[in-house]
Design a protein around this nucleic acid. Sequence first.
DNA 1: ACACAATTACACGGATTGGTGTAATAATGT
DNA 2: ACATTATTACACCAATCCGTGTAATTGTGT
Lengths: 135, 135
Amino acid sequence: MGNNLDSEKVESCCTRESRTSAEAPLSDADASELEDLFKILANDTRLKLLHNLALAREMCVCDLADSLGMKPQAVSNQLQRLSDRGIVSTRRVGNNVYYRVVDTCILDLLHKAVCLLRDSEDRRDGVVSLASLNR
Amino acid sequence: MGNNLDSEKVESCCTRESRTSAEAPLSDADASELEDLFKILANDTRLKLLHNLALAREMCVCDLADSLGMKPQAVSNQLQRLSDRGIVSTRRVGNNVYYRVVDTCILDLLHKAVCLLRDSEDRRDGVVSLASLNR
DNA sequence: ACACAATTACACGGATTGGTGTAATAATGT
DNA sequence: ACATTATTACACCAATCCGTGTAATTGTGT
């Protein structure tokens, strides 16, 4: 298979979202899947790992551990969970195992979340937004 | 701006995101805040509550509890957590306390997440598993 | 004042989580 | 074969989470 690591296109997610799911029922199954999705992101270690992997293309466990100031076991634990969900994948080079993000849509969601945080920070700081004039 | 029948405008979030945060450092503080954000969404009860509140403008605790098939205490617990984060707000009418979503950006994020789930479902359905060839 | 309904406050118990420490596994070099 | 490094597997423990049950609080009606 063509393994060209040079095509870094991340904008292929939710392109046709439109308004379809605006009134989706959100069944129990969907709610459960959503819960799992958010759960995997609800940990600062995993968030940092994803972020580092998003910037550097590939990183091995020891480098990630060093970058986060954590022990390799702890990092490996979280990487394992990310791997189980299919978010990252591994490639072995000698003693080192290099991880990289394969589900780039996750990064898209993460990016959106960071954006929301900044928005709410702005709101707290008193930045006059258009919405505030609505009342 | 399109056709808004009920003046439901939710698209005021992350409008100017651009590429600024594409290489943001993601400090420990940011990671921690992100973790909290995802944590509040990492629960199916809260997800259902948010979804119901997104569809119906306002709902009281008992109706929400009835809708989810849960006891009012459990629902109230989760509503409280959503309220603490400023995601929902309350309005008292007699004995009833009506909740509604005020942080509509959260709904935006939720919508995005649903979208990603559908994408990955599509991917699973459409791609012949490589692992099956492994034996 | 009293009874009643809706909501909330609070402590409890079972379940999950995440880092740690130890040990096992895999790959390299001598 | 042996030592060394990198990664993983596993049991342990403290912390958190969430629904439950009980009790307290708030508002309504008589």
